[in-house]
Design a protein around this nucleic acid. Structure first.
Lengths: 194, 194
DNA sequence: TGTACATCAGTGAACGCGCGTTCACTGATGTAC
DNA sequence: TGTACATCAGTGAACGCGCGTTCACTGATGTAC
């Protein structure tokens, strides 16, 4: 049956958030429409009143995940802009490694992106650019012959790759997983002139 | 019909290589038994004479991909062991970015690994450890306060993450993609004491 | 070496299942009077 | 403000499809004599 405009907008937002959480946790191919709708408290048919198909939900869910991740990450604390230390502590924590669902959409879906449609890939690029741009101004001086932009690109690559490797090895080789997080925490801090 | 032992072993090897190539290119969930067998010149039922199920083919294909990648990467040239430059040139090339199928299984499947079974994850960990161990002895001196092991971990994380981001952005934001490859080439060379 | 037969890798139809998507229907919402 | 009706978000059965897997069958291979 019909619902109020407000309720409909709420439901749409719930679908996007639920889908994003599930896609990050189990991969885009690994989650079906039926489960997303069920977790959002709907039957599967309802989805098509909000999105023309699964792919467009994928695109919106990624965009929303990147947007809210970016906002959370760059939020000012006590009026101060975020520091490099805060980015590094956040990305290289156990909570980041062990909670796919609640964290960075770039890290969660990086190797699935190339197989998605153009809109989705576009959102991914914007998200990556914004992360680099957010890190760049937090950099201090370091004994390295490289521009701030180059160092920001390195830090983003290492964070995304490091978290992915730490996740993939956390059960079978926890030593490697821990070592990856702590080595990156130390050496990226130094490279970033923390 | 039955085939000779030699032919059967050939077929098994073909299945593993074909599956690995397709999994790297389109993801593990993105490729079915039928297509793997078809590309290997068989009908789908034949697979089950060689593997009990898809998951065990996934595990063997990953192990084989990591093994042959490792051999290719660490092969001596003119009696000399591989250098850091060779690793960096290989990982940060367009051929690496654009040919998922023929390259590093770690880079291709890093964010799918956490969802695979224990055997598959174990193979992944071994592959990652071997890559770190291969890079460590190639490092020279650099103005960075970090052990060789820590620098090797950083380089591996940055290569895997950097290639993944370069892949995800190559169509919609080629500028970012190129910049990522060249920035990493330069800065990792410096950090590695190339 | 030649013959008879057991083995078993490969075939292809068939299985149940879950996928994304469609659609006739329902009934509360929002609107026109 | 009250009434009549059009709208349309949500329901749930049904669609075709491709998935992983099974299995009776085939026929060349490998073996026992």
């Amino acid at each position: 049956m019909k619902v109020t405009k407000e309720r409909s907008a709420e439901i749409r937002a719930t679908l996007i958030e639920t889908a994003g959480r599930l896609f990050r946790e189990r991969g885009i191919d690994g989650v079906g429409i039926a489960e997303i709708c069920k977790q959002a408290g709907l039957t599967h048919g309802a989805l098509y009143a909000h999105f023309p198909n699964k792919q467009s939900l994928v695109a919106e869910a990624l965009a929303h995940g990147l947007e809210s991740g970016h906002k959370r990450l760059t939020r000012k604390e006590k009026g101060n802009p975020p520091t490099l230390s805060r980015y590094l502590d956040y990305y290289l924590s156990h909570q980041m490694r062990d909670n796919l669902a609640e964290n960075c959409a770039i890290a969660a879906s990086v190797s699935e992106i190339a197989r998605q449609d153009e809109t989705t890939r576009m959102h991914f690029c914007n998200g990556a650019e914004r992360l680099v741009a957010a890190i760049e101004p937090t950099l201090g001086h370091a004994k390295i012959d490289a521009t701030n932009r180059e160092r920001a690109l390195l830090i983003v690559a290492a964070l995304i790759g490091g978290v992915a490797i730490a996740r993939g090895s956390s059960k079978e080789d926890p030593g490697l997983s821990e070592e990856m997080l702590s080595a990156l925490r130390k050496i990226l801090g130094e490279i970033g002139g923390e």
